[in-house]
Amino acid sequence: MRIGIVTIFPDFVKVIREYGVIAQAVENGLLHIDIFNLRDFTTDKHKVVDDYPYGGGPGMVMKPEPFFRFFEFFQSNYGKAYVILTSPQGRRLDNKVAMELANKEQIVIICGRYEGIDERVMKFVDDEISIGDYVLTGGELPAMVIVDAVSRFVPGVVEEESVKNDSFYNNLLDHPHYTRPREIDGMSVPEVLISGNHEEIELWRRKESLKKTMLKRPDIFMKHEFDELDKKALISLFKELIRDAR
């Protein structure tokens, strides 16, 4: 998968491809992350990318010409891409959206700045994506969040089993995790996890996942499609709650 990021702060976003599993995926050729400096597509000696808004008002607006030149360059060299603008007006990024974008062969993410971009640039944009109902100083952080979330669903970047056990997959939060030591400050690892009984471990993890989701995110719990393991886990959970209430 190829991902392009268009920004006026390339040094800000380049770290996304330099650490962790994404860096490994880039090294192994599973991901190609290209970072484009919008100022390289200006023609004046000061490399200006913004100007005052028509009609007056506060702030500056990103000029259309550098974007037009960028897309002419990109399409000539890389072909057609699915273009995303990071925007608080866009649809909310979630696991479903990330999975959808991971199926695209090539995406380009535009990092907005200032008061926004000239509306005429929208002719190139296929999608607007927000990472939450708040405003940031620029689109670089949202772009990095999008890249990270999408990359996890690109085959080979992360183990498939790990992705399936993550929070929000199938509308459930993740179960608790433990590692060594077995006991610390009077707190022990649950006995079931060291029992060696894989069926019981799987049941315990699902039960804890259901419990955590009910308590913390009842909104997504109601969207979960229950299978046989869920039913067994819920019975176990209800028995546990009744026992604790006595």
Rank of each mutant, 00 (worst) to 15 (best):
M1Q: 07
G4A: 11
T7E: 05
T7L: 00
F12K: 06
V13A: 01
V13T: 07
K14M: 11
E18S: 11
E18T: 05
A23G: 09
Q24C: 05
V26C: 14
N28T: 10
H32P: 04
D34W: 09
I35R: 01
N37Y: 01
T42R: 06
K45Y: 14
K45S: 11
K47V: 08
D50P: 08
D50C: 08
Y54A: 09
G57M: 04
P58A: 13
P58E: 12
G59H: 01
E65S: 10
R69G: 01
F70L: 02
E72P: 02
F73S: 05
F74E: 14
S76V: 10
S76Q: 15
Y78I: 08
G79K: 13
A81W: 02
A81G: 08
V83C: 00
I84W: 00
L85W: 05
L85C: 01
S87K: 01
S87W: 05
S87L: 09
P88K: 02
G90A: 01
R92W: 11
D94M: 03
D94A: 10
N95G: 15
V97A: 09
A98R: 06
L101Y: 07
L101R: 02
K104D: 02
E105H: 14
E105S: 15
Q106A: 13
I107P: 02
I107S: 01
I109H: 00
I110F: 03
I117Q: 00
D118G: 06
D118R: 03
E119V: 07
R120W: 07
R120A: 12
M122R: 12
K123N: 08
D127K: 14
S130F: 03
S130R: 04
G132E: 12
G132T: 07
Y134L: 04
V135E: 07
V135Y: 04
L136S: 00
L136Y: 02
G139M: 00
E140W: 04
A143C: 03
M144F: 03
V145M: 10
V145I: 14
I146K: 05
D148R: 09
D148N: 12
S151H: 04
R152W: 04
V154I: 15
P155T: 10
G156Y: 07
G156P: 04
G156N: 02
V157Q: 02
V158C: 04
V158A: 05
E161C: 09
S162L: 14
N165C: 11
S167P: 07
S167W: 04
N170V: 08
D174N: 15
D174A: 14
H175E: 11
P176E: 00
Y178F: 14
I184W: 15
D185I: 09
D185G: 14
S188G: 12
V189E: 07
E191I: 09
E191T: 11
I194G: 08
G196E: 04
H198Q: 13
H198W: 03
E199S: 15
E200S: 13
I201A: 10
E202W: 04
R205M: 10
S209Y: 00
S209H: 08
L210F: 07
L210N: 02
M214D: 09
M214Q: 14
L215Q: 14
L215A: 12
K216V: 13
K216Y: 13
P218C: 01
P218N: 03
D219A: 11
D219T: 08
I220K: 10
I220S: 04
I220A: 08
M222E: 15
M222C: 13
K223F: 09
E228T: 11
D230C: 04
K232L: 10
K232F: 08
L234H: 00
S236T: 12
L237H: 03
L237D: 00
I242A: 14
